[in-house]
Simulated scan of single mutants.
Amino acid sequence: MSNTALLPQPTAHRHLRAVEDLAPPTPAPALPAGTAPRGFALYVGIDEAKAVADGVSLSTIVEALRRTLGELAPHAETYATVALAPAGAGGRDVDVVRLALHEPSAVARSKQEPAEDRTPGGVTVDISRRRVHVDGEAAALTFKEFELLQYLVLREGRTIERTELVSSLWSSSDEEAPGERTIDVHVRRLRAKLGRYEDIVRTVRGSGYRFDRHADVEIHFGHGTPSPDRF
């Protein structure tokens, strides 16, 4: 017997070979004319709390998958991002993720929800159209005010320091790049336009600002909405 046969094989390879031995290859589904497969998306539904309960973190899972893919297909390119969804969103985790990342069939199903099931009034932040409505009325946010609100919304529940807001929302070439305290002025103006919902943008004393959601706040993530790159 060859010594090579006794060497342990990578786990991913062992699993693949076991599957190949047990089941015949599945025929590939027919593709629309004029198209060719360029890769695939694997939607993983698990939040930070569940990952911690399993003894891992989201970044640990991502790196493990990348290592496995590197063994199986060294030429594969990868990109991973975190899926943002409303806090307390119901349903299966993986379905929430598919909708947050704009998977076509999930988005199509969400558009079929009856209008009466949607909460009237309140604040609607439409990221894709760059619009904000307060109690049904359009809020006249400036470009920078919307950028500020969007930045906080996409990092819901995380305190953002003033220095990060300045460096992320103003480039060094901007003629009127603000100092850290000038951010406070922009936040005050933003809050004034949010009216009675101003406290969705909270001040964290000595740190910065945080976006908190109320039950009467809706966030519409349209096609192409940016997600924070965490991996």
Results as ranks from 00 to 15, higher is better:
Glu137Ala: 15
Ala87Pro: 12
Arg38Cys: 05
Gly55Asn: 01
Ala73Pro: 01
Thr60Ser: 14
Ser59Pro: 04
Ala28Trp: 05
Ala36Met: 09
Gly136Ser: 04
Gly45Met: 05
Val62Leu: 06
Asp47Phe: 04
Arg130Lys: 11
Leu84Thr: 08
Leu101His: 11
Ala89Cys: 07
Pro27Ile: 08
Glu116Ile: 12
Arg66Lys: 13
Leu72Val: 13
Ala100Gly: 00
Val82Leu: 15
Glu48Asp: 15
Ala100Asn: 02
Glu77Tyr: 12
Gly90Gln: 14
Val56Glu: 10
Pro37Cys: 05
Gly34Met: 09
Arg67Asn: 10
Leu42Met: 07
Asp126Gln: 01
Val62Glu: 07
Ala80Asp: 11
Pro37Phe: 03
Arg98Ser: 04
Leu31His: 06
Leu69Arg: 06
Ala33Glu: 15
Phe146Lys: 01
Ala49Met: 05
Gly88Asp: 04
Val44Ile: 15
His75Pro: 07
Ala41Gly: 08
Val94Ile: 09
Thr78His: 14
His102Trp: 10
Gly88Trp: 09
Gly34Ala: 11
Val62Gln: 06
Pro86Cys: 08
Asp54Thr: 00
Ser110Met: 08
Ser110His: 12
Asp126Ala: 01
Glu77Val: 13
Phe143Pro: 08
Thr60Val: 12
Ser57Lys: 04
Arg92Ala: 14
Phe40Ala: 14
Ala140Gln: 13
Arg109Glu: 14
Ile46Ser: 06
Leu42Asn: 02
Arg118Tyr: 10
Gly136Val: 04
Ala83Ile: 05
Arg38Ala: 04
Ala51Asn: 10
Ala83Glu: 05
Val44Asn: 03
Glu145Leu: 02
Arg67Thr: 12
Asp117Ala: 15
Asp117Pro: 03
Val132Met: 03
Val96Arg: 15
Arg38Gln: 07
Pro114Asp: 11
Val44Trp: 03
Phe143Trp: 12
Ala64Arg: 06
Ala33Trp: 08
Leu101Cys: 13
Ser128Glu: 09
Arg118Thr: 06
Val125Asn: 00
His102Lys: 12
Thr124Cys: 03
Ala73Met: 05
Ala36Thr: 13
Ser110Thr: 07
Ser110Val: 04
Val123Asn: 00
Ala87Arg: 14
Glu63Met: 10
Ala49Val: 10
Arg129Cys: 09
Asp126Ile: 00
Val56Tyr: 07
Glu116Met: 11
Gly91Ala: 11
Val56Asp: 10
Gly55His: 01
Arg129Ser: 10
Glu116Ser: 15
Arg67Ile: 09
Ala139Asn: 01
Leu58Gln: 08
Ala108Asp: 13
Val123Leu: 07
Glu137Ile: 14
Thr119Leu: 15
Gly34Arg: 08
Ile127Phe: 09
Ala51Glu: 09
Thr142Arg: 13
Pro104Ile: 01
Gly88Ile: 09
Arg118Glu: 10
Lys111Cys: 10
Phe40Glu: 02
Ile46Asn: 02
Leu42His: 02
Ala73Asn: 08
Thr124Tyr: 00
Ser59Met: 11
Glu71Cys: 03
Pro74Gln: 05
Val132Ser: 00
Thr35Gln: 14
Asp135Tyr: 02
Thr124Phe: 00
Phe146Cys: 05
Ile127Pro: 00
Pro37Asn: 03
Thr68Asp: 11
Gly136Met: 06
